[in-house]
Design a protein around this nucleic acid. Sequence first.
RNA 1: GGAGAGGUGGCCGAGUGGUCGAAGGCGCUUGCCUGCUAAGCAAGUGUGGGGGUAACCCCACCGAGGGUUCGAAUCCCUCCCUCUCCGCCA
Length: 424
Amino acid sequence: MIDIKLLRKNPEFFIEALRKRNSSPELVDEILKIDAEWRKLTSEVNNLKAERNNLSKLVAKAKAEKDEVKAREVIEKSKEIGEKIKKIEEVQKELEEKILNIALNIPNIPAEDVPIGKDETENVEVRRWGEPRKFEFEPKAHWDLGPDLGLMDFERAAKLSGSRFTVMYGYLARLERALVQFMLDVHTKEHGYTEVWLPHLVKRQTMTWTGQLPKFEEEAYNTSKDDLFLIPTAEVPLAALHAQEVLTEKELPKKYTAFTPCYRREAGSYGKDVRGMIRQHQFDKVELVWVTTPERSFEDLEQLTKDAERILQLLELPYRVISLCTGDLGFAAAKTYDLEVWLPSYNAYKEISSCSNDTDFQARRANIRYRGKDNKLHFVHTLNGSGIAIGRALVAVIENYQNPDGSITIPKVLIPYMGVERIP
RNA sequence: GGAGAGGUGGCCGAGUGGUCGAAGGCGCUUGCCUGCUAAGCAAGUGUGGGGGUAACCCCACCGAGGGUUCGAAUCCCUCCCUCUCCGCCA
């Protein structure tokens, strides 16, 4: 959430930021107008309350002195004020709700070094790693490769659940599990992350804390009876883990990793990535989340991104790193690097990880603070990144490691987890 | 699901209608003392909001939301959470 105090002081800054993002700059004026009214009422009601508090003391005093007449007189006066207060408070509450509603729909402010651009065509490539393999045969797309091996089944998945679901058997099912184990091992043993096991159903409140709600309700699966949401990413429960808490500066940064399935309705993505298992309603992901301080959060984003890149390097999958431009940034992000892996079926680099610094955006919503060296309370900064998406990693592995006979060589680092060197 | 107990400041814990933002303790900060450490002594120590150049002033907050009352941590209602026992259960 944005800082309303800053917004009062410097509305132009926010208007400019929203413009860069292709968002709605008019929200700034809207919120300021309501806020001015709110402040006026707040002053008024505070003064009335002060008056009432004084009268209450007089009542106590009069009663102590057994002066019933005086007491009754003051009580009458106080009653009148009480009614005024009630009326103003009703209006005040309405205004507060309006302000909150708008504030919850304003995205994070882009960091200064984020490239300015209108949409994904203006993202900037930062670096590349590895060379796309030159095939001496016509490589198959995973949606052919998998079913040809008899290990990937889109028809039965559709029978069970509809489109955008996949069933896998045998070695491919095992490959999914191997990737999970491998990534968690790297992050916990080599990168110092704490592994976390999490609920996959969370409250509406939790989704609001991290920024998924209220704006993106259409995207989320909801269990109507209990109003719980299936998590679209482990970022939600991980980033909200310390909601409403005060942390000590000493314990920061906290580095968490978690494996969970992710559930997304993919509303509005009709016609996008319709073949294969690139865009699914359910997919596995190993997530990375840092809870850190404002002083170091952008440095930390570089490290988190490298931690995610390390997975692709160990798997020897060619990729590139993209810095998202202002127009393509996610709602909560101030800065984002996407990792894109080479996919022969697309003949292009395809997103496999997204690493963001959300600065204090989630911390404000979820009220996550730490006590600094100055002994004062400050909002933490939260970072998140895929470390990395399992389903797309599986696709990348089988497509990039396929052989002319339709078999798949297992990447070196996965052999201990697979128990075999090739599939089948 | 049934029965019971409970939710107070960073933590423990007192407080059943009025000077309670809240005793006391622990912790923390600062100073004194002390070969070092520990102990001891003294003072300070919540958060959020509004106003003011500032010193500072005001308001709110005792799980959440309503209600009663001139006035609520304290009384009433609803909800949430935790614990104990019973039932059910992977």
